[in-house]
Design a binder for these strands. Structure first.
Lengths: 335, 335
DNA sequence: CTGAAAGCGCTTACAG
DNA sequence: CTGAAAGCGCTTACAG
């Protein structure tokens, strides 16, 4: 079978503990011993068994990544979070256990209570997320991506949707726009507790109200051709609006062709601003001025804080709720 | 700390082995004992430690999923494979270790030699895939999604790109088309050994030649606005072509707006056929007659065969190379 | 600088 | 039907 630490010890003529210490560097080893061990390891092709090590150290060096794929959600968005998380984890020495089960609460309980992971990342957290109670009861720490209603005792990371909305409204207001359409995520996103929907919308409406702007708020659609029909209906109903704020990936991806078909030129006939990630904008080549989110930063922060809590809980401090600052990228879709 | 099997045994007044057998059902237990154990388990909240179990059984119940994210590739496509794989694995009792490292060969060696997984799934396999040697040297079995040049000793699953191309050419030929444009994946996909590119293209050209058709072959682009420019240039250069076969997700996703902008009506002015998955077509609402691939079937087959090889190698038989049959979905984009 | 031994939490022959 | 014990492959106090 596989070569074990015992084989290495025998081959190098030392004890297993010495091999182990050589591996970990936790005590000093004479040069000659170290060399013999190194030689034995390479010539035998030894790699320490992860399970045995986990059992001995009670550290799996694995993080659970709990995703939820809402059938209605725009798939491309998910990968933008998963990849940076995986990369950052690896950088810190951790592997990723991908958990996609529909019954996320059950799955969370399973992987934590079986000790399969040292910590857990919850993606796509909603307002009242049923996973949170299970997480709080778990022996391992967790970090959330997405802001829930009750953050008690949890490390939370999210984009600053409120600030993003304000930045966009300010931008349009500064350019002289006085009647603005806001397209939010689809209604069912709100209904299932996707708080980013109302955090953005409410901030936008509030800001608009403060400036005395005429704001028109609509829900977006998640699929073509409904998106096109909906956008057309909205634009028909609001012929005097001069600007469009779109907070919906599916709509923004479809918008160029919808507006082209309608003969609407951007920004001459209509100013358009949005909120999406750099990667997303790039792969769909969205030419819109937008607040750019940074899924990679979000993921990085979440993983780093989680690992801190795992390895040095005393330094991790009190639970944090951290919002990633939005940045406005001007791309000429407004005037 | 966490509750162990010893706690359960003590609570139920039996030995650890009896608890273990009650858990596994590998020997008969008297009703009263079984009840006491069950009571102890629930009242203590016991879950067997996965690492300890793995060490004792040499089974981790984890599959490695090795993905490669080519920066040029269309992100949405990836998730269509990952999700069905994860679901099927869970159905069979396995969890998924997601490995996304750039140095995939190294990562593969790491997770296999450390015994972190019972088997491994390689996604996005290319013609001469450097991971294959490592896989062949590993103690665990593996399954590939994607056809490499040398399938020696490996279970391989892929879509039948050649047959897909033939089906589409046959369809167009049957409708009377005599001059056809084929848009393949981008050149760099070919260059890095993405064999699906030439498997499809070569089969299409060959079939066209057999029918005496005029076939024009081009590489696609991966991003807007280059895609639009390229398509426009191609259509300008081939004004008499009556049909378009598109084998490129990014191009097909962008095509509706490109053709609309050009004033080309489908199918009146141009027949369009493609090759994509149901999900993909749905989320981008592509109204094109197409050969539909089934990433879910692919993933399911790969996982099932892999698990068979893990659990009952004697029944898994000789290595298989299996192509998923394509299906033509007529959607009225041809005439 | 190094070794012998206990222990991590399970499973599974071996006995009865 | 059930238990005592060995073993999976590591790590880490404890000794020297």
């Amino acid at each position: 079978m596989a070569v074990t630490i015992t084989d290495v010890a025998r081959h190098a003529g030392v004890s297993r503990s010495t091999v182990s210490y050589a591996l970990s560097g936790k005590r000093s080893i004479s040069a000659s011993t170290r060399d013999r061990i190194a030689e034995a390891i390479t010539s035998l092709g030894f790699t320490a068994n992860a399970g045995a090590r986990a059992l001995a150290t009670s550290q799996t060096m694995v993080l659970g990544l709990l995703t939820q794929f809402h059938q209605d959600e725009f798939a491309p968005a998910m990968l933008q979070y998963v990849l940076p998380i995986s990369d950052t984890a690896r950088e810190l020495g951790y592997d990723i256990l991908l958990v996609t089960e529909l019954d996320a609460t059950d799955a969370l309980r399973r992987v934590t209570s079986a000790g399969m992971v040292d910590g857990v990342l919850l993606l796509d957290v909603i307002h009242e997320d049923p996973r949170l109670d299970t997480l709080r009861a778990a022996a391992q720490p967790g970090a959330l991506v997405g802001l829930p209603k009750d953050t008690e005792g949890l490390d939370v990371f999210d984009l600053d949707f409120g600030e993003s909305a304000r930045i966009l409204v300010d931008h349009l207001f500064g350019l002289g726009h006085r009647e603005i359409i806001v397209i939010s995520p689809p209604l069912h996103v709100f209904e299932r507790g996707g708080a980013y929907g109302w955090r953005f919308r409410d901030a936008a409406l509030e800001r608009g109200a403060r400036y005395g702007l005429q704001m028109h708020s609509y829900y977006g659609e998640s699929q073509q051709p409904t998106i096109g029909q909906s956008v057309n209906a909205i634009l028909d109903a609001r012929p005097t609006a001069t600007a469009l704020i779109v907070h919906n990936d599916a709509t923004i991806a479809a918008l160029p062709s919808i507006l082209a078909a309608r003969g609407v030129r951007v920004p001459d006939d209509l100013s358009v601003v949005s909120l999406f990630s750099k990667d997303f904008g790039r792969s769909f080549s969205l030419p819109y001025t937008a607040v750019e989110s940074s899924p990679d930063q979000l993921g990085q922060h979440a993983v780093r804080q989680l690992v801190r809590r795992i390895t040095t809980p005393e330094l991790a401090g009190a639970p944090v709720t951290r919002f990633i600052a939005p940045e406005l990228a001007i791309r000429g879709s407004t005037m």
